[in-house]
Simulated assay, not measured.
Amino acid sequence: MKKPKMTLKPMLVATLLVASPFLAHADALQALKGFVAEVKSGTAQFTQTVSSPDGKKKKTSSGTFDFQRPDQFRFVYTKPFQQTIVGDGQKVWIYDPDLNQASSRKMDKALGATPAALLAGTNLDRDFTLKALPSENGVDWVQATPKQADGGLQSLKIGFRGKELDAIDVVDGFGQRSLLQFSSVNTNVPMPADKFRFVLPSGADLIEQ
C-alpha cells in the first residue's frame, strides 16, 4: 500500500502576562522580528501533528529541521515514514526514499507564503501581514496573513516561548490543521557547505515542475 504523503503546504513571566496582555502581544511580534534579524541559521527537532477538519483523525510524524538564511532549509521526516524536503535557495526538492522518487520546483514558486518562508526567509513584511495574538499556555503567537491570496491556506501562526521558536500552526484550504512543535532548538550554528545541497540518489525518478 502506498503510504500517505506528508505535505508541507518558518514570554513574559506569568505575572506580566496577567497584568499586561498588551505587552505580551507586542513581545510576540518583537520575538518574530528578532528571530528573523538575529538568527541566521539553526537546527531543531520537530513533531508534526496533522488533524482532520473535525479534529477526530490525527497523524503524527517527527524528524529534524535545519535552516540558513536566505531561503535554505532541510526538513527530514524520520517517523513513521521517511521523506526529505530541501530548499537550496534556487529550488525546493522533495524526496521519497520508499518510492525512490524526487520532485523539484523553483524556489519563487514553491516558497511564497509558507511556513518555510517564515522560518528561513528574510523579508516577512513583503509576504505577510503580521498581527500579535493572545498568549496561550506560555506561548506568544503571531498570525501571518499572506499578502497575496492563497486558496491553499486558511491561517498561519508562529509561536515563541520568550525568544525561542516553539511552534508553527497551519490550517489549509480544506480545514486540515498541521501543528509543528519544535524542541532542542540551536541557533546561529555553523552549517556544512553541502547541508542544503540535494543530490538525486542513483536510479531515482525526477519530476520537475
Results as ranks from 00 to 15, higher is better:
residue 6 M to F: 14
residue 106 K to S: 14
residue 183 S to E: 00
residue 19 A to C: 09
residue 170 V to E: 05
residue 198 F to C: 01
residue 19 A to T: 10
residue 170 V to W: 02
residue 171 V to W: 07
residue 130 L to D: 07
residue 107 M to G: 00
residue 178 S to A: 14
residue 170 V to T: 12
residue 82 Q to F: 10
residue 31 A to N: 04
residue 169 D to G: 00
residue 91 K to H: 13
residue 74 R to C: 02
residue 181 Q to R: 15
residue 51 S to I: 00
residue 82 Q to T: 10
residue 117 A to C: 03
residue 53 P to D: 04
residue 88 D to E: 04
residue 93 W to D: 01
residue 90 Q to I: 09
residue 112 G to D: 01
residue 134 P to I: 10
residue 110 A to N: 03
residue 63 G to M: 01
residue 179 L to C: 02
residue 156 L to D: 03
residue 54 D to A: 07
residue 80 P to V: 08
residue 53 P to A: 03
residue 155 S to C: 12
residue 38 E to V: 02
residue 194 D to N: 15
residue 70 P to V: 09
residue 140 D to A: 15
residue 29 L to N: 03
residue 19 A to E: 15
residue 102 A to G: 09
residue 148 Q to R: 15
residue 74 R to G: 03
residue 107 M to S: 04
residue 196 F to M: 02
residue 7 T to I: 11
residue 94 I to T: 15
residue 141 W to V: 01
residue 72 Q to E: 11
residue 142 V to D: 00
residue 164 E to I: 02
residue 119 L to Q: 03
residue 160 F to M: 00
residue 189 V to R: 03
residue 185 V to A: 09
residue 10 P to E: 11
residue 13 V to S: 11
residue 126 R to K: 12
residue 17 L to K: 13
residue 75 F to M: 05
residue 205 D to A: 15
residue 92 V to D: 04
residue 49 T to E: 12
residue 183 S to V: 05
residue 195 K to P: 01
residue 75 F to W: 13
residue 82 Q to G: 08
residue 29 L to I: 10
residue 32 L to P: 01
residue 56 K to F: 11
residue 197 R to D: 10
residue 202 S to Y: 13
residue 99 L to N: 04
residue 157 K to F: 06
residue 72 Q to R: 14
residue 121 G to H: 04
residue 1 M to I: 12
residue 135 S to H: 07
residue 107 M to V: 09
residue 36 V to D: 09
residue 18 V to Q: 14
residue 148 Q to L: 14
residue 134 P to C: 07
residue 153 L to R: 06
residue 189 V to D: 00
residue 127 D to F: 08
residue 195 K to H: 06
residue 119 L to V: 09
residue 207 I to E: 15
residue 29 L to M: 09
residue 52 S to C: 02
residue 86 V to G: 07
residue 208 E to D: 09
residue 75 F to D: 05
residue 123 N to I: 01
residue 80 P to I: 05
residue 40 K to T: 05
residue 205 D to W: 11
residue 208 E to C: 01
residue 173 G to I: 11
residue 146 P to L: 07
residue 181 Q to P: 00
residue 15 T to D: 15
residue 85 I to F: 10
residue 154 Q to P: 06
residue 75 F to I: 12
residue 104 S to M: 10
residue 21 P to C: 06
residue 120 A to H: 08
residue 73 F to E: 11
residue 144 A to F: 02
residue 152 G to Y: 10
residue 78 T to H: 06
residue 116 A to T: 05
residue 131 K to M: 14
residue 56 K to L: 13
residue 86 V to T: 13
residue 98 D to E: 13
